[in-house]
Write a protein that binds this DNA or RNA. Structure first.
Lengths: 234, 234
DNA sequence: GTCATTTATTGACCCCTGTCAAAAAGATTC
DNA sequence: GAATCTTTTTGACAGGGGTCAATAAATGAC
């Protein structure tokens, strides 16, 4: 991990976490922010660490995850460039990261000081509302994740995941998986073996086509039916 | 469901959602709020309904839940008196309830108008911060729920639940389950039969004692070891 | 209090998915 | 580009926990 100069101002104004702040405030926050680079596989922080910094991923890719006592890993989110994370820790009495964070690819991040951001938000209720919106959206995503873990079996979770990605990419006929299948499995809370079998079934029944990480959705309607549970397909 | 008079002011100031608002603002919000009563088993709202109101449970008990296509129910939270819910819907572009809500007992609620609350928050960054704190805490709870669904088996989830309740009640040797075992099962995402078997095992191994909904924690240290995974006990 | 409905318990059975193993295919590193 | 490490796939197997069924107990309604 390498910590260097304050980040460039122009480059950053457009990010949700700063946009809308008066320029003077934003400059103040940025003056004390730092650019942090981290190599593939390195940990940015561990669960339970004091959370003095709020993060913005500028490029690269990271995972937020928890570990079970026997070393199993559940990925809560895969962080892509442009996404900020750990904002919620600012508002808790005991500021600690609730998850581990490690780099899936070499990454560049901006580290904001938590107290600086709190001070900037104090004076700016627009910024507060934007953050409330961001956290509310993430809350919904967590509710969706809980539903899928509690009410859907492995094949349904896989079908839902593919469908969500398909829609997120604006429904082109093909897209690339955002991470290795091992990590996708960690995100869906299944074993890599189970994901492999599930994808193989979808392929052999003609719903998808697959070439390494490149997924082609051959029959979107069938995938939708499968995700709804109204098509067995296995 | 019965909707009546605006609620009493003095009675409500102490609730987090209003406390801290200037008196004039709070009175304004309350003037347009309503007291709603609902019978056991009735639905307050369904998943997907437009979310025009934010709720405070004054007494009674409710469940927030989702349903699978085959009718299975996953309970996301059991709402006790004093708790507000659905705040996050205020900040989303499409204001809809993300879950179903039904009464476990006959209940009395206060219904705040979402726009009124937003207007009150606009002018009050202290109130914004308190709400950010509330949502952040709930986010952590959701992360914990995801972890337990993804990384813990049924017996571990039961042990963790008992331990959490034990601590929440301030570690007396006994407490009452907050709802029927069927609903606790729905909260833990297991079947009632599995919960029954799990509790029977804990009882027969002397860790707990059980009389209907009354649970006695006979061996707290053993329960902690079981929850940590360092004691098989089955 | 009585009756009807819901909840809780226990047993039998079986399927989904995790585990272990081994080979093949890809990525990284130097 | 060779060597090494990681990821992916496929097979065999087992067990955790779901489902179905029947009974008992408890709760709610009148």
């Amino acid at each position: 991990m390498n910590i260097s100069r304050p980040p460039d101002f122009d480059d950053l104004r457009r990010f949700a976490i700063l946009s809308g702040l008066p320029v003077a405030k934003a400059e103040q926050v940025l003056a004390r922010a730092r650019v942090v680079t981290i190599g593939r596989g390195e940990h940015l922080f561990h669960q339970g660490d004091p959370a003095r910094r709020i993060w913005l991923c500028r490029n690269g890719q990271l995972k937020l995850f928890r570990l079970s006592s026997d070393g199993q890993e559940k990925i809560l989110a895969i962080i892509q460039p442009g996404r900020s994370f750990a904002e919620a820790t600012m508002f808790l009495p005991e500021r600690r990261y609730p998850v581990h964070c490690a780099a899936l690819k070499a990454s560049e991040l901006v580290a904001f000081d938590a107290d600086d951001l709190v001070a900037a938000l104090r004076a700016d209720s627009d910024a507060c509302f934007r953050l409330l919106g961001t956290l509310s959206r993430r809350m919904q995503e967590k509710i969706n994740q809980i539903e899928s873990l509690a009410l859907q079996n492995a094949h349904l979770r896989v079908a839902h995941y593919l469908l969500d990605e398909f829609r997120r990419h604006d429904r082109p006929d093909h897209f690339r998986l955002e991470a290795s299948k091992k990590h996708i499995a960690g995100l869906l809370a299944i074993q890599p073996e189970t994901l492999s079998r599930s994808l193989a079934m979808l392929q052999s029944s003609g719903v998808i086509d697959m070439d390494a990480r490149r997924i082609t959705i051959s029959a979107p309607e069938r995938l939708e039916r499968i995700a709804r549970g109204s098509d067995a397909a296995h």
